[in-house]
């Protein structure tokens, strides 16, 4: 097991190194001089010189990479071309908002998907199964901004129960934070829930058809026991994996929801950075999201190995 943990951690670090190369290359794939491009019409020779020296773009590329990586390792991701603010500060300001939204959305998704998926597998071919399938179909085929707009319309405009947009830190005002969290979390969570529902259903169905489940029934164990200890115990393994991956996907892909709900998270930060050609910020955001994604993956795999004794052994 510990050998397995080391191996997985090593793999994750290697992957992160790969990501860093891709992210670093971004700077150099941009046609022309990125700083000049970024400054655009606001070009000013003095500002240009300062930025150039600070970004190290006047050095040979391998040296630039090593410099960039070593400073990135200690949390220094450079400064924003736009604001001059350290990129890591900007990221850390935004990360809690995105993490909160992503985790809340995942929870909403799981709360929808677990019962819906399990019930529709156990009652395969019955009306509940069709209902759950219908939900999953609609859920994945309608884009999330549509739910967002719909929810704002109904719950903010018409009913006036919840604020239509904006982010408040739960540390400042927990009640307001929660009220503002509900609509974006449900919006992103419905899509996640739809994806997960299908997945939970097929995992449970697959687990139910396993020979050892038939043997458990042939041993005379009650159906509830068989479901909990044999079917779900095996179905959890893929469900936990995919849920973890969904969290990673949510972190990276929540841009649209953040924009619809004016949610000041990493997604909006990255989007703004693209629009403003603020490359250090974009690099930092991508690196952070990729790093978190890899970390989640690693944790998922470790949980997975804990649940399935065959993994770590092989």
């Amino acid at each position: 097991m510990s050998g397995y943990v080391l191996r997985r951690v090593g793999q994750s670090l290697l992957a992160l190194l790969g990501v860093s190369i891709v992210v670093f290359a971004l700077m150099h794939l941009v046609p022309g001089d990125p700083i000049r491009t970024a400054l655009g019409t606001r070009f000013d020779q003095d500002v240009y010189e300062v930025l150039l020296a600070r970004s190290g773009l006047d050095q040979p590329i391998p040296i630039q990479y090593v410099d960039w990586l070593t400073s990135a390792l200690v949390g220094d991701l450079g400064v924003s071309f736009r604001t001059g603010q350290p990129v890591s500060d900007a990221l850390m300001q935004r990360l809690p908002a995105t993490a909160l939204l992503a985790v809340a959305a995942l929870l909403v998704g799981i709360v929808i998907a677990l019962p819906a998926g399990i019930v529709s597998a156990v009652r395969q071919g019955k009306p509940v199964d069709y209902a759950a399938n219908g939900f999953a179909q609609v859920g994945v085929s309608v884009p999330d901004f549509w739910y967002g707009i719909l929810l704002i319309l109904v719950f903010a405009q018409i009913l006036g129960w919840l604020p239509p947009s904006g982010y408040t830190s739960p540390l400042d005002d927990p009640v307001d934070a929660l009220r503002r969290l509900i609509l974006p979390a449900v919006t992103a969570g419905v899509v996640t829930g739809a994806i997960l529902t299908r997945f939970v259903r097929s995992s449970v169905l697959e687990a139910m058809s396993a020979d050892h489940v038939r043997l458990a029934r042939a041993k005379g164990m009650p159906s509830g026991y068989v479901l909990r200890h044999h079917v779900l115990r095996n179905a959890w393994i893929p469900i936990i994996t995919v849920s973890g991956l969904q969290l990673g996907t949510l972190l990276g892909g929540i841009v649209v929801v953040e924009v619809v709900f004016a949610w000041n998270g990493l997604g909006r930060l990255a989007l703004d950075a693209v629009v403003r050609r603020d490359y250090p910020v974009l690099q930092g955001a991508v690196l952070l999201i990729a790093g978190v994604f890899l970390l989640i993956n690693l944790l998922v795999d470790l949980v997975y190995a804990k649940l399935d004794p065959r993994i770590a052994a092989s």
Binding site: A210, D211, H212, V213, R214, L215, A216, A218, K219, H229, H230, R233, N234, I237, L307, D308, P309, R310
Partner: peptide
């Protein structure tokens, strides 16, 4: 009592 065919799949891998 039942004994089924496949020894590779008749036992639950996680227990």
């Amino acid at each position: 009592g039942y004994v089924f065919q496949d020894p590779m799949t008749s036992l639950n891998p996680v227990h």
